[in-house]
Write a protein that binds this DNA or RNA. Sequence first.
DNA 1: CTTTTATTTTAGCCTCATCTAATTTTTATT
DNA 2: AATAAAAATTAGATGAGGCTAAAATAAAAG
Lengths: 226, 226
Amino acid sequence: MLTRSEEDHLKAVHALLEGGASAANKDVAERMGTKASSVTMMLKKLADKGLLKLEPYHGVKLTAKGRAEALKLVRKHRLWETFLVERLGFGWDEVHEVAEQLEHVRSEKLTDHLAEYLGDPAFDPHGDPIPDRHGRITARNMRPLPAVGTGERVRVAAVKDGSDALLQLLGRKGIGIGKVFTVRDRQDFDQSLELVAADGIHLTLSAKAAAHLWVEPASPRERRAP
Amino acid sequence: MLTRSEEDHLKAVHALLEGGASAANKDVAERMGTKASSVTMMLKKLADKGLLKLEPYHGVKLTAKGRAEALKLVRKHRLWETFLVERLGFGWDEVHEVAEQLEHVRSEKLTDHLAEYLGDPAFDPHGDPIPDRHGRITARNMRPLPAVGTGERVRVAAVKDGSDALLQLLGRKGIGIGKVFTVRDRQDFDQSLELVAADGIHLTLSAKAAAHLWVEPASPRERRAP
DNA sequence: CTTTTATTTTAGCCTCATCTAATTTTTATT
DNA sequence: AATAAAAATTAGATGAGGCTAAAATAAAAG
Ligand SMILES: [Mn+2]
Ligand SMILES: [Mn+2]
Ligand SMILES: [Mn+2]
Ligand SMILES: [Mn+2]
């Protein structure tokens, strides 16, 4: 049985590896808000428990068991976020911290009943995929917004690594999951983007904010929410 | 800020004192599943934090602060139990352990939104009162079933200290909160009770089981659920 | 009013999860 | 390739929260 701290470390490693990066000790420490030496200790424990392979000084790789365990945590975290937003009326910028606690509640029955209660959602309020009971994830065809060419029509599919501040900013601009718009222009000076929403409203987004917006192709005039 | 263990100890003390008993060290230890020496240490910590007054060798008394804190925990525990039964379809004998974990999630907003979502219930699935945001509890006129005279018509208001096994037994006999019946007879030999339900069905209840059933007067033919 | 038993407290030990400081190893820069 | 900088590991400390065993105290029995 994993402790809460072990669970959070495993999740941090998973999130880093999933994001393409190599889960360097210092990155895990930064995510966890602890020191590198503490991370070394925890990673050893996780390796002992067969959840990851540890090559001292050269980083970690998740085992199949570790990946499965991490996906269970991700599932719980995102189900709770969905519950908080869709049932309790939380804003999408208010749920992370609470879900960070709720995800550690141990009860298979609770997780499965919660999923069913919510209609087995495939995406959380930030557009992140919710693994099913077996760890399977719905595949999508997404790119970060800065990779989109001018003139293209896209739909917001997810906000990746969105801080609460970013989520609030997007909220104030009326940008949410499922929002459809066309990339009108890109400023040479600062790479900021000019967007035109489906309702004709124009808005500007900094390159920094745009980097967190992942979008999927929207065939002209189509509409669908994940 | 209280740790999880401190919270559980405080709750144990509160439950014992509320039940009329004096929260003896060994009783707390038994509730917590730990040893008396561990309890001594935790009670010292709680006393240091101003939650209770500790008279060495002579037991504890809750301070106003301690009582308020305990009631917040009770509120959370019972709200979660209600959620699990009413929304997720758990049985009333399956919720305690999970609520024992959920009660420690720290978020005022979560607690209040959950209460509102559930319709600010005054009683949990076992008939125990749910304190409101200010710790106030709905008063009731209850007696344990063994104190009821033959011929009296009563409504089940709560199951006190019900183990999962007892709750299952009651469930199988069709006894739940709000159930109305008449005490038909009491056996001299073992104090077991003969009951007649509103629908005319007869059933027998051991003195041991009956001791956990708390009932309120039911005027003939009335019906109401807490 | 003693003596025995039950309860509580104290003392000393352990594991977990963190820290700081020192050391080792890897990576980057001259 | 040598040196400097960055990152990771090890070593040793701390505090929380538990344990067992011993000592102190209170309660019950005689
Ligand atoms: Mn967490
Ligand atoms: Mn999310
Ligand atoms: Mn608890
Ligand atoms: Mn209850």
